[in-house]
Simulated scan of single mutants.
Amino acid sequence: FMDAFKWKQEEIDLLVNIFAANTKSQTGQSFRKRLMDSQTYGLSQGKKADEYLARAFRQDLEAMNYVIDVYAGGRKPNYPRIDSISFNITNKSYLYLLKDVAQDVLKDVQQPKLAFYESLWTAVRLLEVNERWDVAQLEPLMELENKKAYEAIRKTDFSRYPYSLLLTLGAGPDQYGQPISPGGMLRSRMAARSYFDGLAPFIMVSGGRVHPYKTPYIEALEMKKYLMQVLGVPEEAILIDPHARHTTTNLRNTSRILLTYGFPQDKFAIVNSSVPHIDAVQNMADRCMRELGYIPYELGKRISDVIVEFKPRIESLTIDPDEPLDP
């Protein structure tokens, strides 16, 4: 099953060459420019279009294989305690589940030209049966949960505030069925206090469906509810990132929003959490390089025991292919 599901290396090499050759037309050149301008496959400055395109296409094909390895083959993901497969792959009945996945995908491949999508759709089906649709939850954010705050950004006079945004890091519950942890409540209170003191016009709460394993609750959404219903922060002042699974991606995803939602690029944002958590943020560069391959933020001053300044870096737009629940 695994061999049938995945792209073979010779197939990847062949498809990369075909794709590169078929994007040399005028329409293809427009696509290449949009791809390079997006910076989503690393910084494009100094790169040739052929090189950047091949890197992007190869990365996506190999990312499909990675999903299949983890969510069909039981390979350990980067964080097995929260992201591992939902099934016992040594159970004989599991093979019948994989057979059902294969049959389902083949029903959608009625024409030879659709064969290209077999591995992609297999990866998506495997994420689905593992209940791992985290990457798409609450999307599109700009039109749903972040709509009021997104619209308020354009009307905000940021010169009235010392900082553009306050990122509040979560503290995942330890008990299954607990929507928000005591730490999450206290950090939300820190954020509300800073907001009402006028430090920043927007609060960002960041945290996905992470702790404990297979929790039904999205941390950022529960913190938003707490900020609104308990602490009286207006919805138009709250942005959420419901995807981040680690402190590294709390900062990375917030940096992406700062770059793409219209925040002033010359102004620092701030991040608040517990003292040891902010200590960790200040010493997280090596971890970012190890797990992401880049540092998605620039740190500024630590203005209190629980708050430190940061700015987004353009590198934060880069996709992380071995984190399919929050790439």
Rank of each mutant, 00 (worst) to 15 (best):
H277S: 04
Q137W: 08
L120D: 12
L199S: 08
F196P: 04
P77N: 05
N272T: 15
A171H: 13
L138D: 09
A200F: 06
T318V: 07
D305R: 15
L221Y: 14
V275W: 11
T23Q: 15
R125I: 05
E298W: 02
L186N: 09
L239N: 00
S181F: 06
D322W: 08
M289W: 02
I278E: 06
Q175E: 13
Y41N: 08
E145G: 00
G232M: 12
H211L: 11
K24N: 06
T248Q: 06
T215E: 04
Y294D: 01
N253F: 00
L167A: 07
A269M: 06
E10G: 02
V306W: 12
P212W: 11
L43K: 11
R55I: 04
T23D: 13
P80A: 11
D322Q: 12
Q29A: 13
I278M: 07
S159W: 01
G170Q: 03
V109D: 02
M228H: 04
M289E: 08
M64Y: 10
Y150N: 01
I218K: 01
Y94T: 11
V230D: 15
D326L: 04
S159G: 11
Y217F: 15
S159R: 09
K224T: 06
F268N: 10
L141N: 03
R245Q: 08
R34V: 10
F31G: 08
D83Y: 05
M185E: 14
D197T: 10
L144W: 06
K99Q: 15
S86C: 12
R290L: 09
R256A: 00
S93W: 12
L169D: 01
I68Q: 06
D60T: 12
